[in-house]
Design a protein around this nucleic acid. Structure first.
Length: 729
DNA sequence: GCAAGGTC
C-alpha cells in the first residue's frame, strides 16, 4: 500500500514527516526538491510538497477580445520568474503517480485547499481526487498533526469550488478591465500604456485618492498658542526658559487670544499644583508580518516589500521563523529556553538574555494565525549577513527578547501655574525604570530634566508668547500606514499587501515616500467611479466574501457566482467601450501630465521620455522639435520632486543601494550634492569612540552609537551636548 | 501583458 501526502510548502512537509514517524527518511528529487519516506510493515508513505499555487488561470484562447474562457496551466508557463515551481510539479508527477491513497495536507483555508486540489488533479491525475482524504490541522505542532492524520476527513469540494470561483472572478474583473483601459488609450491615442485595475489594487488606490482630495480641499484655519516662558529657577546654569502652554491649547478666536496675551503681560506666575505620576509601559508584542514591516519602516525606513523579502530569506536560511504570519502569539511549544540557549552563543545576545527575569512568559498581542506563530529567531545564529539583513535579524531577535522582559516605568511631571488669572501648564517625562527598554534599542528613551518646582512658588515670567499657527491637512499615508489601513479594512492578505502597493508605484499611479497620487492615478479612479463604481470600493471584496461563503455552505453554486461576475464585467466593458475615446484621451493626458518634471527655459514642459532606439529614458522639452533641450538620465534614475538649489531644475537619484546618489538633472550644473543615504554624524561616542549618528525612532529623532548593539549609548538631540560634557568631567 | 493568491 502506497500513501502520498501532499503539503502546501516544503517546511510543512518536513514538520508533518517528523510528526508522523521517528523513522523517516529525507530524500531528494533532483537537486532542489526534498521529500520524505516512511516505510512501515504494510505501508509506504511518501510526503511531498507544493510551493504554494502550482497552477494558474490563463485564457484558453489568447486572441479573444475578452477573457471568460479560462483553463489551469502550470504557473511557470505563464510567469517566467516562477521557474522554481517546475521542479516541484515534476516531483509530484513522478513520486505521486499511481498511489493507492492520497492525503491532502495543505493549510486548511480556501487557497490551501485549492493548492492541494490542483496539485492532485493536474499532477497526480484526475482519478486521484476519488481516493483522497483530508488532514485538518490549525498548527504545525506534533500533536495537531498526529491528530489530523488519525482523524482524516473528506475533501470538502465546496471549499475547492470557493477557491476556484475566487480565482476566476478576480481574473474576470482584473484582467478584462485592465485590458479595456489599455485598449481605450490605444484607440484614442494610438499609444500603449500599461494600465491595471483589480479587486484589491483599485480600492487601495481609491483610499489614497480620498486622502489626496481631503488634502486638496483642506482650508487651513489660523489659531493661536499662548506660551509663558518661565525662569528656570531651580537650575540657573540651564539657561533655557521653561515653556508652559496655556491650558486652552489651540485658540481659534483671535480676540480671546489677544485678551489672554494682554492680561498676562507683566505678571509673574504662581505654581498651583505639582503632580508626579508613574505609568507602566508593558513590553512590546511579538511581530507578525505587518508589525515587522511597520517597525522596520519607522526604524530603518525600509519598504514593506523589502522587509518581506529579507524576512523570507532569513527564514529560508533557517535563522528566523515563517514570516507570512498574522499571529502575535508565542506558544510555549516553541521551547523558548532552547532558543535562548542557542542565541546565547552570541556574547551580546547572551548579556540581554541572562538579565531577563526568571519567569519567562511572553507579552502577547491579540491576533492569531491558524498555521504559524509570531515571527521569532530559531536560535541558529547567522554566520554572515549583509547589513540590511542584519538589521532585520537583530530587530527580530531584540523584539523576541524584549517581549519576555519586565515592564518599563515612565515618570511624568505636570506643573500647573497661574499667570494673573490665566492657567498654564507644562509636562516632563523620564524613564524611571528601563525594563524591556534596555533590551530593545529601537525606541527613544525619554529623559527630560525635572525642575524642582513646588506648590506656592513664585516664578518669574520672562516673556509671554502668542504664536500664530495654521491647522494642517490630514497626513499622507506612507507604505507602512497604508498596510495598516488595508489590514483594518481586510483588503488583500498579509502576503500580498506589500506587492499591491509596489504595483501602484510601478504603474506610476502614485509616487513619493509620503504617498502622493499622480494625475494618472486620479484619472483611473474618476473613470472607474463612473463606469464601475463597485471596483473602486471595498464592496466588491465584501460581496465576493459573502458569495464564497455561500458556495462553501452549499447555498449557491460556483457556476452561478462566476456567471454573475461575467454578466457584471460584460456590462462594464460595454460601458467602457462606448466611451472609449473620452476615457482613453483622459487617461493619456493624465499620464502625460504625470511625466512633467519641470519647466524648460523656452516655456515648454520638461517631460520624461523613452527612447526605443537606445532603450533608455531621458528628459526632453515638450516643444521639441522647436526646442531641443535634452538631459540624459543614468540607468535606473528617478526624477525627484526636490529642486536643485543652484539652477532650479529637478534633482534625480541614481545608483543602487548605499551608493545611490542625488544630483541635479543637469550633469553640468556641478552643485555638490551629498549622498542620499548618508547618515548625519553628530559627534563621537563618549563610551566607545565610534561615531554618534542621528537616527529615527518611533518617537522622533534621537542619537545612537554606530557601535550598536555592542555599545548602547543613546541620547536625545537636546541633551547630547550635556551628556558629552559630563563624560569629559 | 493584464488580477490576486499562494510560495521560494
Amino acid at each position: 500500500m502506497h500513501e502520498v501526502i501532499i503539503c502546501e510548502k516544503p517546511k510543512s512537509a518536513e514538520k508533518i514527516a517528523q510528526a508522523l514517524s521517528s523513522n523517516v527518511k529525507k530524500m531528494k528529487y533532483g537537486r532542489k526538491v526534498n521529500y520524505w519516506e516512511i516505510n512501515e510493515k504494510d505501508k509506504r508513505i511518501t510526503i511531498i510538497s507544493a510551493v504554494g499555487h502550482l497552477y494558474s488561470l490563463t485564457p484558453k484562447n489568447q486572441k479573444e477580445k475578452v477573457y471568460f474562457d479560462l483553463k489551469w496551466v502550470p504557473s511557470y508557463e505563464t510567469q517566467k520568474n516562477l521557474n522554481y515551481v517546475k521542479d516541484y510539479v515534476y516531483a509530484i508527477k513522478k513520486l505521486g503517480k499511481g498511489a493507492d491513497k492520497y492525503i491532502h495536507a495543505c493549510d486548511y483555508d480556501i487557497e490551501g485547499t485549492l493548492i492541494g486540489f490542483n496539485a492532485l488533479k493536474y499532477a497526480c491525475g484526475e482519478n486521484s481526487i476519488d481516493i483522497t482524504s483530508r488532514m485538518k490541522f490549525s498548527t504545525l505542532t506534533k500533536k495537531d498533526l498526529i491528530d489530523a492524520y488519525n482523524n482524516q476527513i473528506e475533501l470538502d469540494i465546496n471549499q475547492v469550488n470557493g477557491g476556484i470561483a475566487r480565482h476566476i472572478v478576480d481574473f474576470y474583473f482584473g484582467v478584462n478591465i485592465s485590458k479595456a483601459l489599455t485598449t481605450a488609450v490605444r484607440k484614442a491615442k494610438y499609444r500603449y500604456l500599461q494600465l491595471s485595475a483589480g479587486r484589491v489594487q483599485t480600492p487601495t488606490l481609491a483610499i489614497l485618492v480620498g486622502r489626496e482630495k481631503e488634502i486638496q480641499k483642506f482650508v487651513p484655519e489660523p489659531y493661536w498658542l499662548i506660551k509663558a516662558l518661565l525662569e528656570n529657577k531651580y537650575e540657573k546654569n540651564k539657561e533655557e526658559d521653561i515653556i508652559a502652554d496655556h491650558v486652552e491649547g489651540k485658540i481659534f478666536d483671535p480676540e480671546r487670544a489677544e485678551k489672554i496675551f494682554e492680561s498676562c503681560q507683566g505678571a509673574d506666575s504662581t505654581v498651583d499644583k505639582v503632580k508626579l505620576s508613574e505609568t507602566i509601559r508593558k513590553p512590546p508584542i511579538p511581530f507578525n508580518l505587518g508589525g515587522l514591516q511597520s517597525e522596520a519602516h519607522t526604524v530603518f525606513g525600509f519598504s514593506p516589500k523589502k522587509t518581506q523579502t529579507i524576512a523570507q530569506n532569513l527564514y529560508t536560511e533557517g535563522y528566523t521563523s515563517y514570516p507570512r504570519t498574522s499571529s502575535q502569539k508565542l506558544p510555549e511549544s516553541l521551547e523558548f529556553k532552547k532558543i535562548f540557549k542557542q542565541l546565547s552563543a552570541n556574547e551580546v545576545f547572551k548579556k540581554h538574555i541572562d538579565s531577563l527575569p526568571q519567569k519567562t512568559k511572553p507579552n502577547e498581542g491579540k491576533k492569531i494565525d491558524a498555521a504559524h506563530p509570531a515571527i521569532h529567531p530559531t536560535g541558529i545564529i547567522p554566520k554572515k549577513l549583509d547589513s540590511d539583513s542584519a538589521k532585520i535579524y537583530e530587530l527580530i531577535v531584540y523584539r523576541f527578547i524584549s517581549v519576555f522582559a519586565e515592564n518599563s516605568k515612565l515618570e511624568t511631571l505636570r506643573v500647573d501655574l497661574s499667570v494673573d488669572k490665566e492657567k498654564f501648564f507644562f509636562k516632563r517625562k523620564r524613564v524611571s525604570y528601563m525594563g524591556w527598554l534596555s533590551h530593545y534599542p529601537f525606541r527613544k528613551i525619554e529623559e527630560d530634566f525635572f525642575p524642582a518646582f513646588k506648590k506656592g512658588d513664585n516664578i518669574k515670567v520672562n516673556e509671554i508668547l502668542s504664536e500664530e499657527k495654521e491647522t494642517k491637512p490630514p497626513a499622507r499615508y506612507n507604505e507602512a500606514s497604508l498596510i495598516k489601513e488595508l489590514e483594518k479594512r481586510e483588503l488583500g492578505t498579509k502576503a500580498t499587501r506589500a506587492d499591491i502597493i509596489a504595483k501602484l508605484y510601478d504603474r506610476k499611479y502614485i509616487s513619493g515616500k509620503k504617498i502622493e497620487v499622480n494625475q494618472l492615478g486620479m484619472n483611473i479612479i474618476s473613470n472607474l467611479q463612473e463606469y464601475c463604481k463597485n471596483l473602486t470600493s471595498e464592496e466588491l471584496t465584501r460581496d465576493l466574501e459573502k458569495k464564497l461563503e455561500g458556495i462553501m455552505a452549499d447555498k449557491i453554486t460556483k457556476d452561478k457566482v462566476i456567471e454573475d461576475a461575467k454578466k457584471e464585467v460584460l456590462t462594464i466593458l460595454d460601458d467602457i467601450d462606448k466611451n472609449n475615446l473620452k476615457i482613453g484621451e483622459g487617461l493619456y493626458n493624465a499620464y502625460q501630465e504625470s511625466r512633467i518634471v519641470g519647466k524648460c527655459t523656452c516655456g515648454g514642459n520638461l517631460v520624461v521620455r523613452f527612447s526605443p532606439k537606445t532603450k533608455s529614458s531621458f528628459v526632453g522639452c515638450s516643444n521639441y522639435p522647436d526646442c531641443n533641450v535634452i538631459y540624459s538620465l543614468p540607468k535606473g534614475a528617478e526624477v525627484l520632486k526636490s529642486k536643485c538649489e543652484k539652477c532650479g531644475l529637478p534633482n534625480i537619484s541614481f545608483g543602487r543601494g548605499k551608493s545611490r546618489k542625488r544630483a541635479c538633472l543637469d550633469s553640468k550644473c556641478g552643485v555638490d550634492h551629498s549622498k542620499i543615504n548618508e547618515v548625519e554624524v553628530v559627534g563621537q561616542c563618549p563610551d566607545c569612540g565610534n561615531n554618534l549618528l542621528k537616527r529615527h525612532g518611533r518617537y522622533g529623532e534621537f542619537v545612537g552609537c554606530s557601535g550598536f548593539p555592542k555599545c548602547k549609548f543613546t541620547s536625545s538631540l537636546e541633551d547630547l551636548e550635556d551628556k558629552l560634557n559630563k563624560k569629559e568631567d
